[in-house]
Design a protein around this nucleic acid. Structure first.
Lengths: 223, 223
DNA sequence: TCCGCTTTTATACATCTGTTTAAAAATATG
DNA sequence: CATATTTTTAAACAGATGTATAAAAGCGGA
């Protein structure tokens, strides 16, 4: 057991440095020695606290998975109480996105840094890492798919799956390559602007989702 | 100079093996010895033909960049001649996607394998690799953004940039994680089905784009 | 203070990395 | 065939990697 007040500053420092480096350059490309150096700690100290490089990754996941999912479900509960189906859909999508995107200042509580790390990890094929990633968020994702279906009863479920897949791809790619937005927009837009990113991903996804539902209203606002 | 008819089978074999391995596991995670082994060739032979690990990556890029861009512009030319703006938008998006997605059987001519490799590379932060990736496709992307603007004159350019960014993110994530579609859909959909993927990405993106055009922005998106 | 436990350190390990070298083999050319 | 060039090979290089080990240091409670 780790005694409170004991000299365990190293553990937190390693955890923070590892998360930062992993989120910047991925899992395989960062060495334990680099993490140790960044945390001003000996290499052996890393394996002492976390057993493995994979153990370190596990610890990072354990730190964030629960809070992010909890916050997501909390926001989802609020969203479900929105009466207007169209606004409800927006609220549901925001409930999914915001906790994954929001402030990374706190070590715990999730945030963009951790999500960026997950984006990089999902790209690396590392089979051992995949075991850790595996379905840490899938059940929550399914809950959201169900919530989306409640907003769009006529849309086929498979296509909702595709759309939410695109949402995640948009999120990940924006976290991985934000400067591409600045480049292609000639500076008119900023890819690091998280609020704008969330808003536009939500708008794009809800438009895509609504396009799935066979036109309910025969007359009315036709695009 | 490489004489035609010379025993340069090794070069092609290395190129193919490298592209396959890079597209499966990324750049940093694949070693030259692994590539050499897969191509039944000596390690020195790889550096003889390609100088570097980076030279190898350059060669793969040179093999695909031009054909893909040529095919894209060819299809774009056809798309621009579509009269109906809505159908034209769809054709423009397809012109962008199809060459990046289509058959990977031929070594040259581009395809999903090469695009998957690019998706992985864009995730790895490798600065040397970034130099090679840099803007091999950005000018083509700008051409497409202009073509989209012609279909949607009222949409602000920055938001078109964002939307095409999401399109690329959706494409990449689908190529990286196709099995997630199968998992979340409980087998009702197949993430490896390229035609469906193209169709749905096009539908989602055009819906998102069209949502930009008519209504004015409700300012200030607060929770 | 001394003791027992936790944490940190230095060091060593085998293995793998990208790259280079010089010799051997294969091929083309006269 | 003999020669010149291209291509392939085996071997070695220095450095980095993840991990293990044993000694040292730090610390809380008696």
């Amino acid at each position: 057991m780790v005694k409170p007040g004991g000299k365990v500053a190293a553990r937190a420092a390693v955890l923070d440095a590892a998360e930062r480096l992993f989120s910047e350059r991925g899992f395989a490309a960062v060495s334990l020695r680099e993490i140790a150096r960044a945390a001003s700690v000996n290499v052996g100290s890393v394996t002492y606290h976390f057993r493995d490089k994979l153990g370190l990754l596990e610890a990072i996941y354990e730190l964030h998975t629960r809070p992010i999912n909890a916050r997501r479900l909390e926001l989802l509960g609020e969203a479900r109480r929105v009466a207007d189906p169209r606004q409800r859909l927006t609220a549901v999508l925001r409930a999914y996105l915001v906790p994954a995107f929001s402030s990374s200042n706190d070590l715990a509580g999730g945030g963009a840094r951790f999500t960026r790390m997950r984006a990089l990890l999902s790209a690396e094929g590392d089979p051992d890492a995949k075991r850790i990633i595996a379905e840490a968020f899938d059940t929550t994702t399914e809950t959201f798919i169900d919530a989306i279906r409640e907003c769009l009863p006529d849309a086929p479920r498979e296509e909702i799956v595709w759309q939410s897949h695109f949402l995640l791809g948009s999120l990940y790619y924006t976290l991985i390559n934000p400067e591409r937005i600045n480049r292609l927009s000639h500076g008119a837009a900023d890819g690091h602007d998280r609020e704008t990113a969330i808003r536009l991903i939500v708008e794009a996804t809800s438009a895509g989702l609504r396009a799935l539902a066979p036109a309910r209203e025969p007359v009315g606002a036709d695009t």
